[in-house]
């Protein structure tokens, strides 16, 4: 139960390289799941990973660290969504210009994107990240019953939108 803060600049860079290499794409994907946009993804990534470098708790292992990163990312996305000052433009130099998948009608990505926030969240965490329902409940602060219901509704909606192809 301990954490190590960045030490020299070399240590800080090495830690930043590890965190970016391990989690940047996960944060981008999770941010996109919430925000339906990649415009703020790099800012969120910077915010989350800087917290990981400067004020994270001690991690009991890689899975603990990953869960913490995901939870903080979810909080950051929800804060952004709630913010009345939601930015409508982002300076070009501040964006990561990530390579977002093309959206088109009829794709499963498009169908998932049309789901409500809480269902998109559950689908991503369960079907992409591989978390169990109980784990998702802990990550998002919901009951297991609520997560189960969200997944069930999401599957039903996707079957409807995708013509019941499974």
């Amino acid at each position: 139960m301990r954490q190590t803060r960045p030490q020299s600049h070399a240590d800080a860079k090495a830690q930043a390289e590890r965190l970016v290499g391990t989690y940047a794409d996960t944060i981008l994907r999770l941010s996109y799941t919430y925000l339906h946009s990649t415009a703020d993804a790099e800012d969120i990534c910077q915010t989350v990973l800087l917290r990981a470098m400067t004020s994270a708790p001690a991690f009991s292992g890689p899975e603990h660290e990953r869960a913490w990163i995901i939870r903080i990312t979810i909080n950051a996305c929800k804060d952004l969504l709630r913010s009345a000052a939601r930015r409508t433009t982002v300076a070009l130099e501040a964006t990561g210009e990530p390579e977002a998948p093309e959206e088109s009608d009829g794709t499963v990505a498009d169908a998932v994107a049309r789901l409500p926030h809480d269902q998109r969240e559950a689908v991503y965490l369960h079907y992409y990240e591989g978390y169990r329902i109980s784990e998702i409940a802990s990550l998002v602060g919901a009951s297991e019953a609520a997560v189960t219901k969200r997944l069930s509704r999401a599957r039903a909606a996707l079957r409807h939108m995708l013509g019941d192809q499974s």
Partner: peptide, 29 residues
């Protein structure tokens, strides 16, 4: 989930460029 493999593949395609990651590393450090 319907077409779950297609969903995972589409999510896999979403990633930062190497340049963006290098930029983030410098800023974070």
């Amino acid at each position: 989930m319907p077409r779950v493999d297609e969903y995972r593949t589409s999510v896999d395609q979403l990633h930062f460029s190497d340049e963006a990651k290098a930029r983030m590393v410098e800023r974070l450090a």
